[in-house]
Design a protein around this nucleic acid. Structure first.
Length: 427
RNA sequence: GGAGAGUUGGCCGAGUGGUCGAAGGCACUCCCCUGCUAAGGGAGCAUAGGACCAAAAAUUCUAUCGAGGGUUCGAAUCCCUCACUCUCCGCCA
């Protein structure tokens, strides 16, 4: 959520920044509402003040045992006007809130300007894609030939966009999550957390999934009490740790990580990545979240991105870092780096992690604050990134580690998690 | 699922219709005193929004005592609904 003060005092800046996202923001509706808000609010508060002082006088007069019927009659005349004004003010403020909740964040000055992923800027590259002296298979082929990847069974159990893993592949999947958590907690200073996979609407609103992106979520009916939502990422529960909290400065930075399943409806992605486990309704991810002092959030973004990169490096997977352009970053983000891992069968780099600085966009919705050096509550900055998407990491290992005989090499750092297994063979 | 008790400021906690944005304590900030590691005295100390202003400060107004609704001239206080917490019983991985 943007600062409404900014919309009031500098609407042109807001419009200009939003335009870099390809969004033509029509200020007129906002301005008209603001003007009305001002008159109605002033009038309402005047009426309230008159009612309050009159009521106080009645109390005092009664205390002295005087007759108050004249004063009662007078204050009664305020009633209707006040009720009407209060109702109108509520309406206006709800509308303003709606507009505010619908606006995405303003891209940071360092975010490249552009309209689509074609305009994203490569920042750096790590590793060298391996040269194959045999026909490269995609991860689906590799996994199915091993007899350990089973989409047919998944389809019978649930449907499209689900996966069943078996045997060593399932264990490799488990190992990846463990490995990532171990690195982030023991070397990068994150605190591991176990969190709910179903959350309430307030939490979804806090991180920005609601109200605009409800169609991307799975909801679980809950009778009278509305519904739960399945988390699309652990960002939601982790970032909501600080909703409605005022942190002491010495608690910062907060670094949290969790390994959770993520659930996405993938509405609107029909026809994209239909084959394989690239785009699933359910996938595992190790998420990194940082809650930091506003002055330090861009430094934190570089660090957090590095934390995610270090996993790819240890797994010896070639990747590149992309600075997403203004037209491609997520709604809440001011700046995003995507990590893209090399997938030889696609002959392309594919997203495996997305690291973003939300600045105060989420914090304002969450009312997540800290006490600054003046002792005043001030909004925090929130960041998050995948460290990494476990399913896609498995895909990368299957494709990059495949051998001519159909087996797959297990990256050295994962072998301790697999009882020393060096190579996954067909069963 | 049943029965009961709760939810007040950074924390603890008083407050059952008016003088309550809210006693008292703790914590914190400043000043004074004292001087040796802890104590005494004084002052300040919620959040958000509005008005005023070029802006800030000051001033002032409004709202906020779990959330929403109601009664009333007036609600932390009375009524209703909901959420959450705790205790006991039941069920249960």
């Amino acid at each position: 959520m943007l600062d409404i003060q900014l919309l009031r005092t500098n609407p042109d800046l807001v419009a200009r920044k939003l335009a870099t996202r390809g969004l033509q923001w029509d200020q007129s509706a906002f301005r008209a509402l603001e003007d009305e808000r001002k008159t109605v609010q002033t009038r309402t508060q005047e009426l309230q003040a008159r009612r309050n002082s009159a009521s106080k006088a009645i109390g005092a007069a009664k205390g002295r045992g005087e007759d108050v019927s004249a004063q009662l009659a007078e204050v009664a005349t305020l009633g209707d006007a006040l009720t009407a004004d209060e109702a109108r003010l509520d309406e206006i403020q709800a509308r303003l809130e709606e507009i505010l909740l619908g606006l995405p964040n303003l891209p940071h000055d360092s975010t490249p300007i552009g309209s689509s992923d074609k305009d994203n800027v490569e920042v750096r590259r790590w590793g060298t894609p391996r040269l194959f002296d045999f026909g490269v298979r995609d991860h689906t082929d590799v996994g199915e030939r091993l007899g350990l990847l089973d989409f047919a069974t998944a389809a019978r159990i649930s449907g499209a966009r689900f996966t069943v893993l078996k045997g060593a592949l399932s264990r490799l999947h488990r190992a990846l999550g463990q490995f990532m958590l171990d690195v982030h907690t023991s070397e990068h200073g994150y605190t591991e957390a176990y969190v709910p996979y179903m959350v309430n609407a307030d939490s979804m609103r806090g991180t920005g999934q609601l109200p605009k992106f409800e169609e991307d979520l799975f909801g679980v009916p809950r009778g009278e009490q509305g519904k739960f939502y399945l988390i699309p990422t652990a960002e939601v529960p982790l970032t909501n740790f600080v909703r409605d909290q005022i942190l002491a400065p010495e608690q910062l930075p907060l670094r949290l990580t969790a390994h959770t399943p993520c659930f996405r409806s993938e509405a609107g992605s029909y026809g994209r990545d239909v084959k394989g486990m690239i785009r699933q309704h359910q996938f595992d991810k190790v998420e990194l979240v940082q809650i930091v002092h506003p002055d330090l959030s861009y430094q934190a973004l570089e660090e957090l991105t590095g934390h995610a990169e270090s996993i790819l490096q240890r797994l010896d997977l070639p990747y590149r870092v992309m600075a997403l352009c203004s037209g491609d970053i997520g709604a809440g983000s001011a700046k995003t780096y995507d990590l893209e891992v090399w997938l030889p069968a696609q002959n392309a780099y594919r997203e495996i992690s997305s690291c973003s600085n939300f600045e105060a966009y989420q914090a304002r919705r969450l009312q997540a604050r800290f006490r600054n050096d003046k002792g005043r509550p001030e909004l925090l900055h929130t960041l998050n990134g995948s460290g990494l998407a476990v399913g896609r990491t498995l895909v990368a290992i299957l494709e990059n580690g495949q051998q001519a005989d159909g087996s797959v090499l297990v990256p050295a750092v994962l072998r301790p998690y697999l009882g020393g297994l060096e190579r996954i063979q067909a069963v």
